[in-house]
Nucleic acid binder design. Structure first.
Lengths: 412, 412
DNA sequence: TTCTTTTTCTCCGAGATACAAATTAAATCT
DNA sequence: AGATTTAATTTGTATCTCGGAGAAAAAGAA
């Protein structure tokens, strides 16, 4: 455990200042002082140090003369060039790479449409390494100036260990991507559940800006769950990110894993069967099947709509359970094609409404969000930036509990 | 938000010291220094203050001469008489009251077997007030010397507000028990979900001592869920404790609320129907029905066993979902009659095993724990004591977010 | 008994921090 | 040019942790 000393104190307050500047645009020292409730003296000292480290810079736009008489405020903002980070997203059919600056602005991104379903982890690592190097080069940067890389992928990921325990896009288990990429690139690399990245992106840049509690349910080929609780990402007991796909929607008989009922992968398969059966055209890729299904449903095809509705209801069941457990003010359903279809969302909403107890009926607002590659990349960047900002949380925890640390004790 | 200043620093370190003493029995200053990684100087200063406040006292048992030559260690322990707190548990058919000292030892307890199902909140408050006054008196204490009261009850409780949003044992909703009792007794009173109390009791005194992550599933007339995450009680977004009974075990058609399938209340009703049907004896109270059901099942009655198994399986479904979400090393099933029956537990274990994905098969150990009234009271006491120890957590949180606090900002 | 050794604990000064009050800085208004 | 106003910095004080020196309290040795 970390004991409280002046250093920690400073770290905490410095983070408050950085956080305020990041969230509320350019700020003057007085404003920071009001926002953080730190004394002007302290803010002055901290900002001086930050300026010295070139993490923030004064915004010398003579522009904003704020109607005042006295000495003009010096607006401070993050220094975009203080650091650069790389975000990577692995999906079953694409690798997306992006480089952002210290503010999270995407400088350059790169999409590699490659099916990595059946590749070995080391081949994927090769692809990622190449992609990162190329993207960094295209952005006119040197890899040595990159402060960190974060890779997001679906599945169960243990961030602290840098290991992907299990993923729908990997055949192997316990893949140590973190250490591998760190070594390959010579840059600190981390991995995380892709949903956690969206969740953080929502918190930093998106609809849940400044919201301390919300859920993100990501509907893609697989299903992911991101939880922000008390302003921090919630991770399972061992730092394992929860996997929504493994939730069961029906006990024993009948249903099964949620991923087998409500993911794009499963719906695609159903769609394929349905469309191939009723139609002469028997050549359908999965992606096409989904597109066609959505189109037909929109056109009024009842059977197609029913397929989407079933998936929506199943996910609604899970969402209702989650709301019962977490009571978040917002639930964000994010995804691409299917997740944004009304034929999917409406049944989902209805299922949630039907299943939720009266006492929780109105606590959660369910909103839908379509995601682009850029959002993922920004999320991955935010994950790395958060460390650079130096958030000292988790350091001050309630309990150390290393019985091993202290000899016999208690019986002494 | 709370900014970091020397005062907070001290508060944090003082808590570390208190926590170490509480958990590892009488300790000398050197031992505290090793455990907390604070310098001997600091420990000396903090313990001096604590001694001054009479929160801890030296253990002057000349007894433990530890083989050494030098100056003997002065063992420090919590001062049992530093404070006294009262714990109350409300159940549908009983009010339990207990007084403990600063160490959590139960000095006196009192069980009032009263059905409060159909009472109004104010009648219940009357009963609680009387019970507390009597129990405190019986313990030879004055109510003015009580530092705090904590009431545990099933249902959805918002501890911070002191309000019970909804409870199976209350007809009314949004009952402000906290403020009411504070006012009646002239003593700080808080309320919390009963399961949170068991959870804390397990963490402080029970099987999960020193374990940072675990779940408690409480099976009584209603179903409760307690979550300890990162060494702290997990509360829903608004500080609402989650209610397991409201979880749905089957989507839409079929099943319904978990409480209607797997609680003692629901099983009792089934048992009553079953036993009354097959037996001449048609006069059965609920409590008797459960007892008889268990007896019959134990004697080999297949139909009775089946009723228990169905409940076990339903709860197993929920537990599997929880494990997928939280991945806790331990899940404690706590309760009384039904929860400890093998005819209930074995199906539960089997259901969990069948439903859990392979990757999570071995992460959670499910253990069963029978609870006595004393444990509840100790939990309630621990909840209050925790505040007295002055845990400063939650004060240092990542995000303030009071947009209202700062005027236009961001656009300035 | 008296002195040495050993271990525990406390006092002292250094270093770092936050904060309040006073001071300086940089504009506008008269 | 001087007064006024607001922003930011400097100065001084109090608190905290920590390392090292010193005092305390026992056991062992002479």
């Amino acid at each position: 455990m970390k004991t409280a000393d002046p250093e920690l104190m400073r770290a905490i307050n410095r983070f408050y200042v950085m956080d305020a500047i990041r969230r509320f645009g350019p700020l003057s020292r007085v404003e920071i002082s009001q926002l953080t409730e730190l004394s002007p003296t302290t803010v002055s000292a901290i900002t001086a140090a930050l300026l010295d480290d070139r993490l923030i810079i004064p915004l010398q736009l003579g522009a904003v003369r704020d109607a005042g008489r006295g000495r003009p405020r010096v607006m401070l903002k993050l220094n975009p060039d203080a650091a650069h980070v790389v975000g990577v997203k692995l999906a079953h059919d694409q690798i997306t790479v992006g480089v952002t600056n210290f503010c999270g602005d995407i400088l350059r991104s790169l999409a590699l449409p490659i099916r990595i379903d059946r590749q070995t982890a080391s081949v994927i690592a090769d692809l990622v390494e190449d992609g990162v190097r190329r993207c960094v080069g295209d952005a006119g940067l040197d890899i040595a100036h990159i402060s960190g890389v974060c890779v997001g992928l679906p599945g169960v990921v243990e961030r602290a260990a840098g290991v992907c325990r299990q993923s729908p896009i990997l055949q192997e288990r316990d893949v140590p991507f973190g250490a591998d990429l760190s070594h390959r690139l010579g840059v600190p690399a981390s991995i995380d559940s892709d949903v956690n990245l969206v969740t953080l992106a929502e918190h930093w840049f998106g609809q849940a800006r400044g919201l301390n509690d919300f859920l993100v349910v990501n509907v893609e080929r697989s299903l992911g769950l991101g939880i922000l609780h008390n302003g921090d990402l919630f991770r399972g007991a061992n730092g394992l990110s929860p996997d929504l796909g493994d939730l069961m929607v029906r006990p024993l008989n009948g249903g099964g894993r949620l991923a087998d009922v409500a993911s794009e992968a499963s719906v695609s398969i159903e769609a394929e069967a349905l469309l191939r059966g009723g139609d002469a055209d028997s050549r359908l890729h999965q992606g096409r099947a989904m597109a066609l299904l959505l189109k037909r449903a929109a056109a009024g095809d009842k059977r197609c709509a029913r397929v989407l509705a079933a998936a929506g209801e199943a996910l609604g069941f899970a969402v209702a359970s989650l709301i019962t457990l977490f009571a978040p003010p917002k639930v964000i359903i994010s995804g691409r094609a299917m997740a944004t279809s009304d034929h999917f969302i409406e049944p989902l909403r209805n299922a949630v409404a039907a299943l939720l107890p009266a006492s929780l009926a109105d606590v959660s607002e369910i909103i839908v969000r379509e995601w682009s590659d850029g959002n993922w990349v920004q999320g991955a960047a935010a994950m790395t930036l958060r460390d650079l900002y130096g958030a000292p949380w988790g350091t001050t925890g309630p309990a150390p509990i290393r019985e091993a640390l202290s000899p016999p004790l208690g019986e002494s």
